[in-house]
Amino acid sequence: MTLFPNLRRTLVACLLTTGLAGPAMADDPTIEELLLATDDAQRGESSHAVMVMGVKTKRYERSMRMEAWSLGTEKSLIRILEPAKDAGITTLKVEDNLWNYLPKVDRTMKVPAGMMSGSWMGSHFSNDDLVRESRLSDDFSCEFTAKPEGGAGNYVIACTPREDAAVVWGKLVATVRADKVPVSIEYFDEDGEKVRTMTYSDVQEIAGRLTPMTMELVPHDKEGEFTRISFETLEIDVPLEDKLFTLQALKQ
């Protein structure tokens, strides 16, 4: 799903830079194939979804229902359906531009890059997770650390930043099933401490693809807390036009 383009792109970037991964076995998919499949499983060329995001922390639980459209990795439109307090607030992201529309005051607000570091809607995702286009293709190197054996197990791919790379994460570890369905992505800081884990579950066939319908992000420094996104409906490779991702759509 295009909600998390930089997560996907991070993964893809890692795979694309993986001449380091060594030659694949004859029947093995390459790292590139695995991560592109992961990317496609989440998104496709376009998508339309209704999803529920649940946030649990020590102090509270909140949920939010949204409708989202995406086209490629650079265009997305998200409209809040519930809770009633925030219903109608819409976010449009096109390339490096991000706008919020507040219908109660008819105000279209451009969100500067410097405002994107905060939590997104009170979740464990940041605004940056939501909209930033990854530029990590030159920053990470990836390699297999495990492969399925005897028809059991998963592919495990470790991605580490190059020495001069200015990236947030010290390492990413992606686990992908043999049928190319993503299982998890682990995020490590520069000290090698695991910071958060994204897991994928509830795999269903959508548009002929096996697609995880639930994603859960667990921050390891906050015991018992998580953000879970579950798709109520998900359409992949639906015909969407560029004009859906304009200021006109933001207001409707």
């Binding site: 500067p112 410097g114 405002m115 994107m116 570091s117 905060g118 939590s119 940041s126």
Partner: peptide, 10 residues
């Protein structure tokens, strides 16, 4: 001008 010096401050 506006900015967010930390994730919780604007």
């Amino acid at each position: 001008a506006d900015g967010r010096p930390t994730g919780t401050t604007s």
